[in-house]
């Protein structure tokens, strides 16, 4: 499997470029950069910013794209995933966008990337010092489902008044016997700010705690930026008698046999056939390459995936 594609540099010479480097104008980048630095200084706090119109609709990752555009440089190696996969439409489009407007090398290899933009997953491979994770966030406010008024949620954060969130988790337990939230599971950052980790599965929550990479979160429609610096305490809310738990599966990945990764269920026909596969496409492909095989190894789906990846180059 190719790890680093040669950068497409159609506009390498500055004089050939009819837009500014990395798409955003310099004043917008400065505004976003100032917001990022304040977000890092106040971990978990949502910094308002003047979100711009991007060449994709809100909901397609405009927050993440603006963050990436403000930090990216020609030396970066860029990876973009959508629900863990490098080869879905949204991920491919955004990756091509930055290869074009920022002249960067792109990769599917988690360990090679310096910037990883993600919609709703943290890669299985542990992040490293010096890497930056950029999350696309639809709803930055963890309390929004409980309190619709921004004026109120802002006050709740100001005074660390998070009782309502615990009541909501308690109601979950009384209704379902457990905390039923599976994605966007609320976390406490450095024991001060309640934060939505964007709708990553709660399976990924523990990966944020004391991790060595910089985590940046951007919500384009909601106009908020927030961040978790490296080596910061991230605690998923729970109760002593109902401790936080991540999802687990009875199955292993049908293609690579992994029993430690987040699995997606794929329906194969209308007769009830289905398979579970790694949501992290690079992790799965890498394992298969190294000789790991699951119960349905060699299934046609595995080949389709490689073909699409090859076509893109």
């Amino acid at each position: 499997m190719t790890v680093t594609e040669a950068p497409a540099r159609p506009n390498a010479a500055p004089e050939d470029r009819y837009y500014t480097y990395a798409y955003l104008d310099e004043q917008t980048k400065r505004m976003i950069r100032r917001a990022i630095l304040k977000a890092l200084a106040i971990p978990g706090y949502q910094v308002p910013f003047g979100s711009r119109e991007m060449p994709v609709p809100y909901g397609w990752g405009t927050g993440g794209i603006q963050l990436t555009a403000a930090i990216i440089g020609p030396e970066d190696v860029y990876k973009c995933i959508d629900q863990g996969a490098d080869d879905t439409t949204n991920a491919v489009s955004i990756r091509r966008f930055f290869a074009t407007v920022a002249d960067v090398a792109t990769t599917e290899d988690t360990s090679e990337a310096t910037i990883i933009q993600s919609r709703h997953r943290i890669p299985e491979q542990p992040l490293a010092d010096g890497q930056i994770m950029v999350f696309q966030v639809p709803q930055p406010e963890p309390l929004r489902g409980l309190e619709p008024r921004e004026t109120e949620t802002r006050a709740m954060h100001a005074y660390a008044e998070y009782g309502l969130q615990y009541v909501s988790l308690y109601e979950n337990i009384s209704a379902y016997g457990r905390i039923a939230a599976t994605a966007g599971y609320p976390v406490m950052i450095d024991e001060r700010y309640l934060m939505s980790p964007s709708p990553i599965p709660k399976f990924d929550n523990p990966k944020m705690h004391m991790n060595p990479a910089i985590l940046l979160f951007g919500a384009g429609r909601e106009k908020r930026i927030y961040a978790v610096p490296p080596f910061t305490r991230v605690r998923s809310l729970d109760f002593e008698d109902y401790p936080f738990e991540t999802q687990s599966w009875d199955e292993v990945c049908a293609l690579c046999g992994a029993n430690d990764s987040y699995l997606d269920e794929v329906v194969l026909d209308d007769k009830g056939q289905h398979m579970f596969v790694c949501s992290d496409s690079h992790y799965c492909a890498d394992r298969r390459e190294k000789g790991h095989a699951g119960p349905m190894a060699g299934h046609a789906l595995a080949h389709i995936e490689t073909e699409i990846a090859a076509e893109e180059v």
């Binding site: 890092l40 200084a41 930090i71 020609p74 910089i214």
Partner: peptide, 19 residues
């Protein structure tokens, strides 16, 4: 080189502030 220089300075500030 205002665009490239401010980007590389910002990345240094990002590292410094994050760590």
């Amino acid at each position: 080189e205002p665009v490239g220089d401010s980007q590389s300075v910002f990345r240094a500030l990002l590292t410094a502030t994050a760590q």
